[in-house]
Design a protein around this nucleic acid. Structure first.
Length: 505
DNA sequence: CCCCCTTTGAAGTTA
DNA sequence: TAACTTCAAAGGGGG
């Protein structure tokens, strides 16, 4: 598994297990996107086993080169360095081209310094911004950002108000937007609209090709206002493309809160990650920076409009249990009811604590973007299967392509950190242990056969996963091809059934 | 209704 | 410090 190299997630992973997949994907991806899409599916369906040794040989040479370097500590260190560096640059060097010496920053240096010499956004930055904030006209964004930067630099009192700008390093133009918002100097403010930057955000693969909203979304804009219709229409998509120059149409102010469930449509990034830079988020950040998030009043998760921020999941609270201690006075029956109420109240209390989700990692971002595409190409519906494909594709991505997502993820974490300063992943651990039952019961008993369990919901996916979640090494890696008699059941039959070329495994 | 499955990566916990 | 665990998204499947 990719994590083999440490918790840092160096995805170099176990070469012996991954190369063939990566190579296969690599070949496909390199030919062309469309071709890759079709082939990927075809291959996946018919079985990736067709991977040839030729592929292995031809691309394995470049593998190390193409793969992102170890990201575990290195990446974190670099991230840290980057943050520190950014902090140092805050006094003026923000838009200088940062000399990112290596991956992943080297890939997208313009994210920190997203402007080209002529002042326009670099394509990469545009991509990021658009992906991040589909509502944002990145063409204007540069001006806004600059303005924001200007504001941020200005000695105005606003400077003092923004808590994170002062407290958190690594301010990007994005956080400057936050800053600006937090100082109530919205670039665009409308009573019914959240700031256009408001997240937004629903990630979508289309975000990389702005201006081409899916046909089924075309009619979602209110002809009068030019504003996408509110979420009450179950068929509305959270995706609000922003064609260049179409600032007037921006917004679905509540873009990020458009129904996240039961959404038939979503393309790609359905679940708008909190990335949201909302006024409310700023306020929340402000609050959170001073109080543990669980101490912040429940409503802090509400948007200005009273709508919950997508970043914060506040589980539904049963209404019945929220009212009432009325009438619980004397009878035993009532006492019993009272007990029940108390119990449910406790649960409610727990539930009321907003659940701030983890920022998405690079792969998650990739999945969000690509899922719809894969689903569209394939008849498969099961996410587990889709995810297997996505996992392979992920490995098939070029270094540069992956770098894009690592950079996005880095930004996500950065933003998340700014939005929820006090938040820790630990919070969610605890939340789950209390609120839900143990989610994972993957606690495999030693010797249990599931260590090579693979999920083959569909014969067309009867391929070895790139990695095995539970086993440090597969039998192939562990025993080698020449000792297949030592392989466990799940591995051997697999070979017999699906493998036309065992050597390619 | 809730959990599982699957993927990778980040971050937490444990030994 | 290494190894392990949990959780992020997604949605069909199953108990």
């Amino acid at each position: 598994m990719p994590q083999l190299n440490g918790g840092g997630g160096d995805d170099l992973g176990a070469n012996d297990e991954m190369i063939s997949f990566k190579d296969e994907g690599e070949q496909e991806e390199k030919i062309s996107e469309n071709l890759s899409a079709e082939r990927d599916l075809a291959d996946v369906k018919s079985s990736l086993v067709n991977e040839s040794e030729t592929n292995q040989n031809s691309s394995s040479d470049s593998e190390a080169e193409r793969r992102p370097p170890p990201r575990s500590e290195t990446f974190r260190d670099k991230t840290r360095e980057s943050l520190e560096e950014a902090a140092k640059r805050q006094d003026g060097g923000l838009f200088k081209s940062p000399p990112y010496p290596g991956y992943p920053f080297i890939m997208i240096p313009d994210l920190t310094s997203p402007y080209l010499p002529n002042g326009s956004l670099s394509p990469t930055a545009r991509t990021y911004l658009q992906m991040k904030w589909p509502l944002l006209d990145v063409n204007h964004g540069s001006l806004q950002s600059r303005q924001a930067l200007k504001d941020a630099r200005s000695p105005s009192p606003a400077h003092i108000v923004g808590p994170f700008c002062l407290e958190f390093p690594g301010q990007s133009d994005l956080s400057l937007h936050q800053f600006q918002l937090s100082n109530k100097v919205p670039v665009v403010q409308h009573p019914h609209h959240v700031h256009p930057l408001t997240p937004l955000i629903t990630y979508s693969n289309e975000h990389f090709t702005p201006g081409n909203p899916p046909p089924h979304l075309q009619g979602d804009v209110d002809p009068k206002t030019g504003i996408p219709r509110p979420p009450q229409h179950p068929d509305i998509s959270p995706y609000y493309p922003l064609s260049p120059g179409a600032v007037g149409q921006i917004p679905h102010p509540l873009g990020w809160l458009v129904p996240q469930q039961g959404q038939p449509v979503y393309q790609g990034f359905r679940h708008p990650y909190p990335t949201a830079l909302t006024v409310n988020a700023s306020m929340q950040s402000f609050l959170s920076s001073r109080f543990p998030h669980h101490m912040v009043p429940p409503h802090h998760s509400l948007h200005q409009t009273g709508i919950p921020h997508p970043a914060i999941v506040t589980p539904n609270v049963k209404q019945e249990s929220s009212h009432s201690d009325i009438g619980l006075n004397s009878s035993t029956i009532l006492y019993t009811l009272h007990r029940k109420h108390q119990d449910s109240k406790k649960e409610d209390e727990k539930k009321k604590q907003p659940h701030i989700k983890k920022p998405l990692n690079a792969f998650m971002l990739y999945m969000k973007e690509m899922r719809a595409k894969v689903v569209a190409e394939c008849t498969l519906k099961e996410s587990a299967a889709i995810n297997q494909i996505l996992g392979r594709r992920w490995h098939a991505l070029t270094r540069e392509e992956q770098a894009k997502y690592y950079e996005l993820a880095r930004k996500e974490r950065q933003l998340h950190m700014q939005l929820y300063p006090g938040w820790s992943a630990r919070d969610n651990y605890a939340a789950n242990q209390q609120g839900k039952k143990k989610k994972r019961k993957r606690d495999k008993q030693p010797g249990e056969g599931n260590e090579h369990r693979e999920y083959f919901p569909n014969p067309c996916l009867s391929l070895p996963p790139i990695t095995d979640l539970s086993a440090p090494k597969k039998c192939r890696a562990r025993f080698g091809l020449d000792q297949q008699n030592n392989w466990c059941g799940p591995c051997s039959p697999y070979l017999l059934s699906f493998c036309s070329d065992t050597s390619s495994l």
